[in-house]
Structures are given as structure tokens and as C-alpha cells.
């Protein structure tokens, strides 16, 4: 059961084990610095996004164009994307370009990320390989009439996606999450409900609940951590 949960709702339930180790993250000072300087409206400390899942970071970029969340994503993924580039192109400049192109797409298309159709890892990895395909064609001076994203869709609204076909699995999963949700403090349930059920932006949810944005975000994070813990404890 817990495997099913992880596969289907990574944003809520996957542990952050696929994220870079903490030591590696600290090693990249420049990203932390840029993240801090680019982040104006919140974040008493630059580390506030460190323990947040990749999916929530994408959500923050999508909802409010949060530059600190983007910097954190950059930090977690850039080296890995660079590696992928080196493996596929064996060219350092192309691989740097790949990091830039991929992260530009993350910045611009975060709103197209759909939790129901796969993890952030999956989405960003697919995107990195798509950008790589386009970059290699450009390097070979091939015409690019068809974008790689049209050949390997990023899990956006394509018809008949396997994840959505199995409604029995989906509803079993949903009722499981509802049960876990009930074990959370009411305040945390409320924010998760506003953001993940009613689909309000963080700003809207904070306004509706009459709490500061920072409070909403920390409650959201605590709530998701607790959910993850509960899902893990069931093993």
C-alpha cells in the first residue's frame, strides 16, 4: 500500500530521499546566496525551503513566482542535470546550456506541473532530456519544427494517461489520505484543504483563513511532513 501511495502522490507522501544530501546542498553557496537575495516577501532565513519537498517548491514557483523556492530547486537539480548533459553530449558548454534551458523551462512552466501525473523528479528529468534532445538538434543545425515536449509530453493533459485510467486505485489512495489527514491538527488540515483540495494559491488560502502567508506556509510544511511521517510509519 505504501508503495502505491508514493507512486501516486509524491508531493504529499514521498520522503525527500531523492533530494541531494544536505552536505552537497550546503556546498553550493552561490545558489543559497542568490536564493536569499532574490527573496523579498518572506523567509526570515534562507534555509526555510531546505526541508520542503520538490513538489511544494514547484508549487511555490507556480503560484507566486517565488525566487527563493526556485533557487532551492536550482540547487537540488542543477548538478544532476549537468551530469545528464555530460553523459548525453560529452560537451561541457552544451551541458551548461542544458542546465540553463532546463531551469528556464522549470521557471516558466512550473504551473503545468501536475502532481497527479508523476513526481517533480520525473517532470524535471523528462524536461532535461527533452531540452537535451532540442539542444543536440540545434548543435547539428537540424531544423526544430517539432518541439521535444510534443514528442515526449511532460505529463500535462494528454488523453488516457495510465495513472488516471485506474480510478479504483485513485479512490483507494484518496480515502487513505483522508484517513491520515484526520490525524493532523485542525489548523494543518485547514491549510492542506485550502491548497491541495480547493486548489487555492498560497496567497488566496492565507487570505481566506485570515492568517499571514508565512504562517500558512509553515503550517503547510509541517502538515505535509506529518502526513509523510504517518504514511511512512504504516510500513
Amino acid at each position: 500500500m505504501e508503495l502505491l501511495l508514493k507512486a501516486n502522490l509524491p508531493g504529499l507522501l514521498s520522503a525527500p530521499e531523492r533530494v541531494f544530501p544536505r552536505s552537497a546542498r550546503r556546498g553550493n553557496e552561490s545558489a543559497v546566496e542568490s536564493g536569499k537575495s532574490g527573496n523579498r516577501d518572506m523567509a526570515p532565513s534562507s534555509n526555510r525551503w531546505e526541508s520542503v519537498s520538490n513538489e511544494e517548491l514547484l508549487g511555490a514557483v507556480s503560484h507566486s513566482g517565488d525566487t527563493a523556492a526556485f533557487a532551492q530547486l536550482f540547487e537540488r537539480y542543477s548538478t544532476r542535470i549537468f551530469q545528464t548533459g555530460m553523459k548525453l553530449t560529452r560537451n561541457e558548454q552544451l551541458s551548461r546550456d542544458l542546465v540553463q534551458e532546463t531551469m528556464i523551462t522549470v521557471w516558466r512552466k512550473a504551473s503545468l506541473f501536475d502532481l497527479d501525473r508523476g513526481s517533480a523528479d520525473n517532470w524535471i528529468f523528462t524536461m532535461a532530456r527533452n531540452r537535451c534532445f532540442d539542444l543536440l538538434r540545434k548543435a547539428k543545425r537540424q531544423p526544430i519544427c517539432v518541439s521535444a515536449d510534443d514528442i515526449w509530453p511532460l505529463g500535462e493533459a494528454t488523453e488516457g494517461s495510465p495513472e488516471l485510467d485506474d480510478s479504483a486505485e485513485q479512490s483507494a489512495l484518496m480515502s487513505r489520505i483522508e484517513q491520515l489527514l484526520e490525524r493532523l491538527p485542525a489548523a494543518q488540515q485547514a491549510v492542506i484543504n485550502q491548497v491541495y483540495v480547493l486548489d487555492f494559491t498560497h496567497e488566496e488560502a492565507a487570505r481566506r483563513l485570515g492568517i499571514p502567508l508565512g504562517t500558512l506556509k509553515s503550517r503547510l510544511r509541517l502538515g505535509l511532513d506529518k502526513l509523510r511521517y504517518l504514511a511512512g510509519a504504516e510500513k
Binding site: 552537497a24 556546498g27 553550493n28 552561490s30 545558489a31 542568490s34 536564493g35 532574490g38 513566482g65 525566487t67 526556485f70 533557487a71 536550482f74 542543477s78 548538478t79 549537468f82 561541457e92 551548461r96 542546465v99 540553463q100 531551469m103 528556464i104 521557471w107 516558466r108 512550473a110 504551473s111
Partner: peptide, 19 residues
């Protein structure tokens, strides 16, 4: 972490782009 991979400034450049 490799010094040769200087991504400095890349984040700033990207977030200045329209979304």
C-alpha cells in the same frame, strides 16, 4: 562540487525572465 561549473548568476538571469 566542481569550481569549473560556475553557474553563478544563472539563477538571477532566469528569474528575471517573464514566466
Amino acid at each position: 562540487p566542481a569550481e569549473t561549473r560556475d553557474f553563478d548568476g544563472m539563477i538571477e538571469r532566469i528569474v528575471s525572465l517573464p514566466r
